[in-house]
Simulated scan of single mutants.
Amino acid sequence: MPIQVETTDRLDIVDITAEVEKRVPDGVERGLCTVFVQHTTAGVVVNEAEQRLLGDVESYLRELVPDEDGYAHDALDGNADSHLRALLLDESVSVPVRDGALALGTWQSVLLIDCDGPRTRSVTVTCTS
């Protein structure tokens, strides 16, 4: 069953590490866990979940892709900036599993970045051994 993530802002970053960790099946001691977001205006990354850094990430994405900049797609849905920001992110990440847990570095977290919120986002987690 996918993780359902509620976002609260147009551009929102949510730490989903704990939810991903819960989906590592019992008995998988070593393997690979793939986290995939099922949307074209969101991404999944591995990075530090420190609040000031997350604010910097949001500012950076807004600087690279300004809101309402005369994009052709805006005539259809008004969210071209969201699609363009998501292109700069990954739709999936793979994290090793070691000793039955995600083998993330000390400061690493799995982050969902929603570029077109607020919405409910679905994130699929698949673990293999």
Rank of each mutant, 00 (worst) to 15 (best):
V125N: 04
L102T: 12
T17W: 10
R62C: 06
V125D: 04
R119M: 01
Y71V: 03
K22D: 13
A103V: 07
T34C: 07
V57R: 03
N47E: 15
V123M: 06
G70D: 08
T126R: 13
D114W: 05
L64A: 08
Q108M: 01
A72Q: 11
L61Q: 01
E21D: 13
A42G: 08
D99T: 07
V110N: 07
V20N: 10
V28N: 02
S94K: 09
Y60H: 07
Y60V: 03
R119W: 08
T7Q: 01
E91A: 06
T7F: 03
V5Q: 05
V97H: 10
R23T: 05
L88N: 00
A103E: 15
S129W: 03
E21V: 06
T7E: 01
G55I: 01
R30L: 13
Y60R: 00
L88Y: 01
T41L: 07
V97A: 09
C127G: 04
Y60L: 08
R85P: 10
T106S: 15
L102G: 11
D56H: 07
R121Q: 06
D116G: 05
V46K: 09
E68P: 01
E58V: 15
P25A: 04
R10L: 15
D90T: 14
V93K: 06
A72M: 09
V57L: 12
A72V: 14
I16L: 03
P118T: 07
E91N: 10
L11Q: 03
E58R: 14
E68R: 14
P118I: 08
L87N: 12
D67E: 14
V37T: 11
S129R: 15
S59Y: 04
V97R: 10
D116Q: 05
H39C: 05
D67Y: 15
L54Y: 06
D99Y: 10
R85T: 07
I3Y: 02
E58M: 07
P96V: 09
C115D: 09
T34V: 14
V35L: 10
T120K: 04
S122Y: 03
V93P: 07
T34N: 11
S109W: 10
E21P: 09
C127L: 04
Q108V: 08
Q4P: 00
A18E: 15
E29H: 12
H83A: 11
L53R: 07
Y71L: 02
A80H: 03
